[in-house]
Write a protein that binds this DNA or RNA. Structure first.
Lengths: 236, 236
DNA sequence: TTGACTTACTTGTCTAAACAAGTGTATGAT
DNA sequence: ATCATACACTTGTTTAGACAAGTAAGTCAA
């Protein structure tokens, strides 16, 4: 299904990014957008809400909707994007290697860590992301084998999410993330160019399908000097 | 103005938290909620969207809306809450001290760091959060003096946001946050019980009013072993 | 000049209705 | 028993309209 509010969202977003609507500027009013896109106000407002949620615009009661400064956005890593999508939008050329690819069964301690069901078969893989020869990020992935079917090393080197969504037709729903800082382990030292640092930044991801079933646990271990997480939040 | 969808959101949320709607359970359908709250479906959906955005529920097309596992939520720090609100909901008793309270003028280098307007008068304060005698968090705040009027050390020891919203009637809009990891500075060592760690977790906050004007820059410097940031994201 | 009021425009909330689309169950023909 | 279909129910999208509420500018009286 083609969703009208998504079309409008994409269209306005493009015009913000290419400078048609520069930062600080007031957008056309909702009623003007209604005429421009020949649609109802509810649909326009939905598109604007998406833009507001991602920090592109800010609407002020009684005044209008204004474009926010894009130079502060840096690079929004907030909204559940896969690594490949992330590196594409940020323009950086990462190289991915897969030093471990195996199938395991979730036992008691793994269940406590990954929250995947006990006895479940799962792919476990290590993925290392390098930038200009330096190993920056060390990912430890667990994927439910019955959901991510027929995974191969080759797919893992490209984009697992692309495979999941485009080839398998799976629908990813939501994720919980926990960020904290941990002492470096022997594994980290083996897979990261960790320099003299004795800590790494860790992002733990619990990823669920559209219907709520948990299918992935991933631990992203970052060299601390290269770690950055940006976030945009609104008060209600 | 009393907003109907907020009332409904609060009501359902309360029932999720007290176990009336346990995790995994299907909520009443949207049309049932319409009858229960004597309102329209649009309003019910808006309340459910709020719950979904915060990770309390997940709606599945054609099936229903389901309560998510709360035990994974830990403590959602995502949605722009002030420190006092945060410690209240998490039940921990923090102690705040204010070792520095002064008024400064934003010069060139400060402008680059804080993004506040050049020449602007601002309060600069240090605030240290302690838990059981250990100094865990070291905040460096910059507040525009013309917006946060008549700030005192006493207010800073309590809640500046409460003062801002309740007493001054200011409306906080949104914030951009950047999380990363930095080497400890001499200032950190002076104000944190930083142990043997040579890094701190840093959250940089750019906070804007409802109308978009930037009024606060805050750097929150956390002892790495006590730092945790949780996040909930949905795929669109 | 100042202050109160009106007016026009903006976004915010809410309603009622219709149709699209996903899910599961019951029915019935094969 | 199996498969296809119809049906009832669910959430998802879209419309058109009404009124509330915040903002800004103009008007007019004091």
């Amino acid at each position: 299904m083609i969703k009208r509010y998504t079309e409008i969202y994409e269209d306005i977003k493009k015009q913000i990014l290419d400078g048609t609507y520069p930062p600080g500027e007031k957008l056309p009013s909702e009623n003007e957008f209604c005429r421009m896109y020949r649609t109802s106000r509810g649909t326009v407002r939905r598109a604007l809400d998406l833009l507001a949620k991602e920090g592109f615009v800010n609407s002020v009661h009684g005044k209008g909707v204004f474009v926010l400064d894009a130079n502060l956005i840096t690079f929004s890593f907030g909204g559940l994007v896969s690594f490949k999508e992330a590196s594409e939008t940020s323009g950086q050329a990462f190289v991915t290697t897969v030093p471990l690819f195996e199938v395991i069964t979730i036992d008691k301690p793994l269940q406590a860590k990954t929250k995947l069901p006990l006895g479940q078969e799962a792919y476990r893989l290590f993925r290392v992301r390098s930038l200009k020869g330096e190993r920056i990020i060390f990912d430890i992935n667990y994927f439910r084998k019955d959901i991510v079917r027929d995974l191969t090393r080759e797919i893992a080197e490209q984009s697992i999410y692309e495979y999941l969504e485009d080839t398998l037709g799976a629908k990813i729903g939501f994720a919980r993330r926990i960020i904290h800082v941990e002492p470096v382990t022997a594994l980290d030292k083996a897979h990261l160019d960790v320099k003299a640092y004795n800590l790494v930044a860790v992002v733990k991801n619990f990823v669920h399908l559209h219907d709520g079933t948990l299918f992935e646990y991933t631990e992203s271990r970052h060299r601390p000097d290269r770690f950055e997480f940006t976030d945009f939040a609104r008060r209600r």
